[in-house]
Computed example of a mutant assay.
Amino acid sequence: MRDRFPDGRLYVNLHGFDHDRQPLEPGEALELLLRSVGLAASEIPSRAEAQGRVFRTLLADRQLLILLANAASAEQVRAPNSLGHASRKPLRQVDPPGAGTA
């Protein structure tokens, strides 16, 4: 996988099915991604729209895999995705562990 994504891999647990905390808001997820690529908290804009622009700018020429895991809904993934996603490949839904089993 390293050869397909030479600039790294980012992972964010969206906490969609955690029982001890609320799911991450889209802005929280984007802030975590910005911190993951090296920005200090003081360098991260407060508005999600501006965060998205910074994220796209920082990743414009990079080949990264970004995994947003444990989403409570498709909407939870679409919001940060619309701010920073650069791939032309569609996202596919992955059911949580144990879904569909009796």
Rank of each mutant, 00 (worst) to 15 (best):
N81D: 13
A29P: 03
D7M: 02
F55C: 12
R35E: 10
A50R: 13
V94I: 03
S42C: 07
G98V: 12
Q22Y: 13
L39Y: 04
G52N: 03
A40T: 06
Q22R: 13
R78A: 14
I44T: 03
A41W: 12
A99D: 15
S46P: 08
S82T: 07
P26V: 02
N13S: 08
A69D: 15
R4T: 11
P45D: 13
R35M: 11
K89W: 08
R88A: 10
L67V: 10
E49Q: 13
A60C: 05
A29D: 03
E28S: 04
G27C: 10
L58T: 03
D20P: 06
E75P: 09
L10K: 04
E75L: 14
R62C: 14
L39H: 02
R47A: 15
A41I: 07
P23M: 10
G98D: 12
P23Q: 05
G27E: 07
R4F: 13
D18M: 04
E43F: 13
L65M: 14
P80T: 04
R2D: 15
S87R: 00
P45A: 12
Q76S: 00
G8L: 04
L83H: 07
L33H: 10
L59C: 15
L24F: 06
A50D: 15
P90N: 00
H19A: 15
P45S: 03
L65G: 12
D20N: 14
A29G: 06
D18P: 04
L33Q: 02
D95W: 08
R62K: 15
S87C: 02
P97C: 11
G8R: 06
D95F: 06
S42P: 03
G98S: 09
L34W: 09
I44N: 08
P90K: 00
N13L: 06
A40D: 09
E28W: 13
R2N: 12
R56G: 03
P97H: 09
L83D: 02
P97S: 12
A60K: 14
Q93S: 07
L33E: 05
A86M: 08
L10N: 01
L24V: 00
R2V: 09
